[in-house]
């Protein structure tokens, strides 16, 4: 061994600083960890950009084709690229949140975090920040490519885009938080939820067609989901050139209720995990 053999080499370090409440220092410690993880693997960075780009190209070409047909079809087709990009924001926002959480389970590191002073809300905050970072890496290049190849400028939506974005992100975090709670409680057996749960919303939130297309009873379900308001609002803006602030406010109200419910569910799953001993299993 090449180590110092004199145990007296240990000197007493300064005591740690005690932050009794919510600490941004701990939040950014976690963000730092996920950032280190992300940048350590270029295929993962590439993966953030790859699929949104493929989606944008496919739907952009379909929109071009429909535009060439003329008439009502061309008018409806204008909204396809907007729909696919907003859907990707919703999907990628949730995935960005859940993947960061899954990283802890893959590396069997949850126990280390749960015995540290990190609080659940600090953990959730760091996952939210990472979902924004992952989303920015994936979506910003795609929006630029959409301008270059299809002349579709998402940024040109201005304030409306901000309203769409806030609502979609709140929904994606709500679902991400619930999925993380399920993972905490049930381990990696629930991993498939992280990848697939959002697709349940794809038909219900009417991404590519108006809510009126659904049967009456399903319309009621659709209007309980905030993204439905966003996609209806997006169609109103792109097709009829009307910004529906009422839809955005209704979506925000539902989002806030669901987000609060998701936080409560996460804390309940965490409490249940402590009771069941599933935090000990390290995610298995």
């Amino acid at each position: 061994m090449n180590m110092q053999n004199d145990p007296a080499a240990f000197s007493a370090p300064l005591p740690p600083i005690f932050h009794p409440g919510f600490s941004w220092m701990r939040v950014f410690a976690m963000v730092r960890r996920y950032w280190f993880l992300l940048r350590s693997s270029w295929p993962r960075v590439l993966d953030l950009i790859y699929w949104p780009t493929v989606q944008m190209c496919m739907w952009g070409l379909l929109q071009t084709y429909m535009g060439q047909q003329g008439g009502a079809l061309a008018r409806v087709g204008q909204a396809f690229l907007g729909a696919v990009m907003l859907w990707d924001m919703l999907f990628r926002g949730q995935l960005g949140f859940s993947i960061s959480f899954l990283e802890e389970m893959y590396s069997r590191n949850l126990s280390n975090l749960m015995i540290s002073p990190l609080r659940p809300m600090e953990f959730v905050s760091s996952l939210i920040i990472m979902s924004l970072i992952r989303l920015a890496i994936g979506m910003v290049p795609v929006t630029i490519l959409a301008i270059l190849f299809f002349g579709f400028n998402l940024w040109g939506l201005g304030f409306a885009l901000a309203a769409f974005f806030v609502n979609l992100m709140l929904t994606s975090w709500t679902i991400g938080i619930v999925v993380s709670g399920l993972l905490l409680r049930n381990g990696l057996g629930a991993e498939s939820m992280a990848w697939s749960i959002m697709f349940l919303l794809l038909p219900l939130t009417c991404v590519y067609y108006p809510v009126a297309t659904l049967p009456d009873w399903l319309q009621f379900v659709a209007w309980c989901l905030p993204p439905t308001y966003v996609f209806e609002g997006m169609r109103a803006l792109l097709i009829d050139h009307v910004f529906r602030a009422d839809l955005m406010l209704e979506a925000l109200a539902i989002n806030l209720v669901l987000f609060a419910g998701a936080i409560c569910a996460f804390l309940a799953f965490l409490r249940s995990s402590r009771e069941a001993g599933s935090l000990l299993a390290g995610g298995e």
């Binding site: 370090p13 300064l14 005591p15 740690p16 600083i17 005690f18 932050h19 600490s23 220092m25 701990r26 950014f28 410690a29 976690m30 730092r32 960890r33 280190f36 993880l37 350590s40 280390n112 975090l113 540290s116 002073p117 990190l118």
Partner: peptide
């Protein structure tokens, strides 16, 4: 993560001066 990065994260979580 490298050992330094791992220890750095835990140092921040524990409020190490």
């Amino acid at each position: 993560l490298t050992i330094r990065q791992n220890l750095d994260v835990f140092a921040r979580l524990y409020g190490v001066q």
